[in-house]
Design a protein around this nucleic acid. Structure first.
Length: 401
DNA sequence: AACGTGATCAACCGCGGAGGC
DNA sequence: AGCCTCCGCGGTTGATCACGT
């Protein structure tokens, strides 16, 4: 028992678990942990797999539709996180629970309401959820034609035609319709301040409440850098670069779950610096190292990526003189159904995976050699902020190292 | 640059149900 | 019926990060 490991999982443990499950399937966690040679409890393996490593885990921030769904389902079922999670494909009970505790409970606290109080539930029902509906509709309207959008916005609420009773696959409770504001259709009418005789939450205006309680989905921030979501990958973090017929992205579309390996510092960005023949790796939080291209090429070559090294390098790192890209973590390539490459998969992808693992380890080793103090000091730039030397982090067309 | 504080989320824990013996 | 193991759930913790001062 004293051999059992605890705490954060290492990359090696992740790979062991992923590979074992790929070969033997999941379930029977205690024996799985033993058979796989993992010094973890079955519980720990199960948790790691279900909440993190499972291929269909949906990462990224909770979308507006999902927020709405969570609020609705929680009002129905309470803290039945796993039951709620069943209705949010790819989301784990842990994630939903965290969302509830960090976001929802925070605002209940701000409003000096108990999260289970009628006041707060009413606030959710009549302010927050309608506000979410409004924003979802606004977002969808923005992608329709300007003419249609303008017409929709010009229509008075009662004239709006598209009922929002089914948003994100969720049937809206009839009780919300016409209570506290008509949120059906493109407009929302809510009282300018939330005040009812039986509650004390009188300080939050509808606007401020909505703005505070339901922050804009951070996916919009991500899409600034990762313009096109991978169509058939369930994980929205797996974005493909612009496939607009330009740059190096014709050849390879290695994609990245950008927050996947944050815990281990393995989520990095690579860019070819053609001036001095360096392959630059950018650590997610502004740490960057340069490895000489020859070193990288030799690693790649050791794993069967032959010939035309530069071309292979661009395929591997999805980088060129015209831009840069994030890499997927090794396990991404190892998992069944990943979208690496897009054209030539199979052995080449396997080779890429192995090379990436080695490079990632090399990279992390170098990072760890910095010592904790320096690592910490280098960790003050936003994860998605543009790096020095790039006009924008992932400006595929123009970013030049 | 240093520090404090709040937010986030992966991972842990305890509990209880299910099933086998 | 009692005991044990496994599994899953919900609650909680603690490390890390972002951000403000």
């Amino acid at each position: 028992m004293e051999d059992l490991r605890r705490g954060p999982w290492t990359v090696e443990e992740d790979l062991t678990l992923v590979n074992y499950i790929a070969n033997h399937g999941e379930g029977r966690w205690n024996s799985l942990a033993r058979s796989a040679g993992l010094k973890r409890t079955g519980k720990s393996c199960r948790l790691r797999w279900l909440n993190y490593l499972r291929p269909d885990v949906r990462r990224g921030n909770i979308t507006l539709e999902e927020q709405l769904m969570i609020l609705e389902l929680h009002s129905r079922w309470g803290n039945r996180w796993s039951k709620i999670a069943q209705h949010l494909p790819g989301r784990t009970d842990n994630e939903i629970k965290n969302y509830w505790r960090t976001r929802v409970q925070k605002h209940a606290k701000q409003l000096k309401c108990d999260v289970n109080s009628k006041q707060f539930k009413d606030a959710m029902k009549y302010l927050w959820m309608p506000r979410l509906v409004e924003r979802i509709q606004a977002a969808s309207a923005s992608v329709s034609t300007a003419t249609v959008a303008a017409a929709a916005m010009a229509a008075p609420p009662t004239m709006a035609t598209t009922a929002a009773s089914n948003i994100g696959g969720m049937a809206f409770p009839p009780a919300l319709a016409g209570m506290g504001g008509d949120f059906r259709g493109g407009r929302v009418n809510v009282a300018p301040s939330y005040s009812t005789p039986e509650n004390s939450c009188t300080t939050a205006s509808s606007d401020s409440f909505g703005a505070q309680v339901s922050p804009v989905s951070d996916l919009t921030d991500l899409t600034e850098y990762y313009p096109i979501p991978a169509g058939d990958n369930p994980n929205p973090d797996y974005y493909q670069p612009n496939n607009n017929g330009q740059g190096c992205y014709q050849e390879s579309s290695l994609t990245s779950p950008c927050a996947y390996f944050n815990n281990y510092g393995m989520d990095f960005q690579a860019c070819m610096d053609q001036n001095n023949n360096q392959c630059i790796f950018h650590y997610p939080r502004s740490i960057s190292f340069s490895f000489h291209l020859d070193l990288i090429v030799s690693i790649v070559g050791d794993h069967g990526l032959e010939a035309n090294q530069e071309r292979k390098m661009r395929g591997l790192f999805n980088a060129s003189e015209r831009g840069c890209a994030l890499l997927a973590p090794p396990s991404f390539y190892l998992q069944k159904g990943c979208r690496a490459g897009g054209k030539k998969l199979g052995e080449e992808r396997e080779a890429k995976s192995k090379a990436i693992i080695l490079i990632a380890k090399l990279f992390d080793k170098k990072r760890m050699s910095m010592g904790p103090e320096r690592r910490r000091k280098k960790s003050h730039v936003s994860r998605f902020a543009p790096r020095q030397g790039f006009e924008r982090q992932c400006d595929w067309g123009r970013g030049v190292a």
